[in-house]
Each structure stands twice: as C-alpha cells, then as structure tokens.
Design a protein around this nucleic acid. Structure first.
Lengths: 243, 243
DNA sequence: AGAAGAAACTGATCCACGGCAGGTTTGACG
DNA sequence: CGTCAAACCTGCCGTGGATCAGTTTCTTCT
C-alpha cells in the first residue's frame, strides 16, 4: 500500500479494504490538480457546465442565499469529499460553493469516474457507501435544525464533524482543527452568530467542548454524545465492512 | 406508448423521452406488487435487510424520532418515488418509514435494477436525474427550515409538493389532493401543529392557498411563488431534456 | 509599532413561535 | 342516531432565540 494516501483513499478504506490496484486507480483520478483561494466562490448559483472535484486539502462550504441576505449553509466539505457531483448531473448549479480555506482539489471528468467504476466495481461500492453516509449526515442536519434546540444542535454538529474528520485522519474524539468562524457556524445551524457565541460559552462552561482559535477541543465526548442524542453507529465502525 | 403508464414512467418521461422498449423494462420492474395499510410502519429505525420499493399508489413519509417524543419528517414520498434505496446500501435503516394512506408498491431487487440499467442506459440517466432532483428538494427543505419563517416555509413546502405531484400528473397549479394532517405538516416543517393551523389561516385569509378536507387549492400561484422565493426552475420544465 | 478590519463577545430589548388548556367540527362505527 | 376519537381551531402566556448596538480581542498589513 502506498504511504502517502489521499484523503479519499483513506475515507473509502473505512468501508472497503482496497487492493493496490484499486488504490492506483484512485490515485489516477488525482491528476489535474487545482488550487483555489479562500473566500472566492468556486461555483455560483445558476452557473452552468460545472466540473466535479475531489477535495484533497482544505475546507469548503455549500450554501444558498435568500433574498433578505441571510444564507443557509447546507454542508461543509472536507478532504476526501466530492464536490459538485450534483451540478454535473443537473446542467445548472443550484447552490454556491465557497472555499473556507485555501483549497487543493482534483478535477474529475465524469468519463474518468465511470471508467474507474467499470474497471473496479468494489471502488464503486465504496464511493456509493461513502456518499450515502454523507447524505445521511445531511438528513441528520435537517432533523437537528427542525427539532433540536440550539445547544443540542450545536453539540450534534460538532460530533458530525468529529466523525467525518476521523474517517480521513483529521480528527479524534479529543478534537480537531476547525477553520470555521462563528458566523459560518451560525449560517450552518440556522442560528444568529450572537446566539452561537452564547451557546459556545455554555458548552465551554459545562466542560463539554471548547471552540477557540481554530481548534475544537472535546473535554467530555460521552457527555456530548448523550446531550446531542448522537447516533453512535456513525462512530463505532472498526475496520472495513467489505474485505 | 402504453396507455396505463406507471407514475414512475410518467415522472421519468419528464426528463428523458422513453422508447417503448424502455417503458417495457420499466414495467417489468413492477412485478412483485405489495400492499401496505396506512399507519403501520413499513421500516423501523435500526431494522436490517430491507428491500427497496417503487411507490405506485399512496403517500408515505420518512421520519426520525427524538428522545423527547418529537419527530422530524424528512421527506414525503409520492407515487413514482423510490423508497428505502439508501437502507439497501446501508445495511441498516437510519429512519422510519410510515404509510400515510393505503399504499401500493413494487418491491425492487437491486439486481433487477442494475440489470435494467445495464440494458437501457438512458433509463439509468433518467433515474439519476430524477433522484438528484428529489435530493435537491430535500436541500431546499433544509434551507427552508433553517432560514425561512413559518409562513414562507409553509408556502414553499406547498409549492414543492405541487411541483413534484405535477410531474406524475397528480397535481396542477390549481391544487392537488393532499392526505396530510396538520400534525404531519407540523412535523415536516419543524413547527407546532398549533402554529401550522394559524399559518394556514393566514394563507387562506390572504387568498393564497386553502388547505381543507384533504384538498389543497391554490388561489394565487404567482403570489405564493413570490412569497416563498420558490425557484421557478423546478416548475418551468416543458418536455423532456433528452430526446 | 500603529492602524484598520475581522472576528469574538456582551447586555438590553423584542418577537415569532411553542406550550397549555380548552372548545368545536368531522368522520367512523355500532 | 348516538358515541367516541381524531382532527381542527382558538386564546393566552411563556420563552428561546433574533436583533440592535455596541466593546474587546485578535489578525494582518504597512
């Protein structure tokens, strides 16, 4: 196995044990490397003919703007995630995509992807598995916004991030580096930044979690899981399901 | 073309012009018909080895329950929609599925589906298109819950339903038959049933829309679209994109 | 080192929506 | 035709979170 795995390879490795050949096919998808600066939209709502990417480094967010200027961040993408797969199917993008940090990403042609799937079906399985897990997280997010109050909602979100980052080796249940501002957190959780600030203070005072200077530190993991009613099956996975 | 099309065939026909052969393949997926009574859960959270279905008749909802007894309805499925596709990938269901009305559905084996896709690639395109459109609606729903207030949120939801039902010929911009109770509406929109009731009254008094006795009547379609900031691209489609 | 601009934080006030407590209509069923 | 259960509707009051209007602390740039 290669020593310098891409985040995607690492992520998929959690679901399916990948052979050297499969890893090579994966690596071949990473030609066509691109860099993007933070803050400048990668994709605009309504834009057409969009490429898909695999995120190699950095964080990105997908959001929608409303008439009154508010926005809702639908999801964050972290290393190992696909970017704008849907905008390829749909001929026109239905949301904006903005890099939060400087970003490294590999452009993927749908033809390459289909090609890769055809030669290595297990890879297709792994990608589908990973994608459906990500989609499940969006659903959890929806449930959170609809029915949990600010404190539980924020706790749940932090655990989602922990789970996802752990899959690509960028986090542990002790914490992770987090480039999000409180404004972004607010727009993701459907709250005001003022209120997020207060919620973070409570989490800190209750000695559950600290979010400071780009670093999330988890003081009481089990306490958080309990508070947020976080589904442990997102965490408990040990080793690939398919060998 | 056959005279008695399934809702799924009708839905896909909006995206891809289907040949007689393709329609036949579609029809062949509808062997293995099943009926389900209203109110009895079709799938429980945590249940394993679940089949996928194509909904032929009736309405279904997917929801999650929280510890405190509240629930969040994530999505409704209407005729022509797939059911539990994700529970097949994931070995265990992460949400409940409950028929709202008596339901007719066809069980689909993943092998049959893959077979169908292999023989008729255009069908695969159509299904993917339809699926990504449905997913886009879930995203809109999330945005709604996060950033729109009750009135706009409810209006938006009604328009989502209108758009989806229109695709399968069960609705027009004049209205549609709607078996949802105000409680379900509340659980879908992240509101209390009391508040939904008030919102519906306002919509009625403003002569935008009436929801009574299982019937939604739209009085001012454009007014609703404007109020809800509804994305017209979900509506404006005239005829298949792929001929 | 100082200026300028983000981002983080805080207190006071407001309001959209929830919760409760009840009343009324509708429909199913014997 | 009477009974019972859902669903629907309404008024009142409580509250979680928004909004406003700042101050303070970090970053970054010169």
């Amino acid at each position: 196995m290669s020593t310098a795995q891409s985040p995607l390879a690492r992520k998929l490795g959690n679901f399916v044990a990948l052979s050297d050949g499969e890893l090579e096919v994966l690596a071949s998808l990473h030609r066509r490397r691109r860099s993007f600066a933070a803050g400048r939209d990668l994709v605009h709502q309504g834009q057409t003919h969009q490429a898909a990417y695999i995120l190699a480094e950095g964080w990105v967010c997908s959001y929608k703007l409303l008439r009154d200027g508010t926005r809702q961040i639908v999801d964050f993408q972290i290393p190992g995630d696909f970017l704008g797969l849907r905008s390829v199917l749909f001929r026109t993008a239905d949301h904006n995509i903005e890099p939060i940090t400087p970003v490294e990403a590999s452009e993927v042609l749908d033809s390459d992807l289909l090609q890769a799937f055809a030669t290595t079906p297990r890879l297709a399985t792994a990608v589908l598995w990973a994608a459906s897990r990500d989609e499940a997280m969006v659903v959890e997010h929806l449930v959170s916004i609809g029915r949990r109050r600010a404190l539980e909602r924020t706790a749940h979100f932090m655990l989602e991030l922990t789970a996802r980052l752990t899959l690509v080796g960028r986090g542990t249940r002790e914490g992770f580096a987090c480039p999000l501002s409180q404004y972004m957190l607010a727009d993701a959780l459907g709250l005001s930044s003022v209120h997020i600030n207060r919620v973070l203070r409570v989490l800190r005072e209750d000695e559950l979690l600290t979010f400071q200077q780009g670093q999330v530190t988890i003081h009481d993991f089990d306490g958080l899981v309990d508070l947020a009613e976080f589904d442990r099956s997102y965490l408990d996975q040990e080793g690939p399901l398919l060998r």
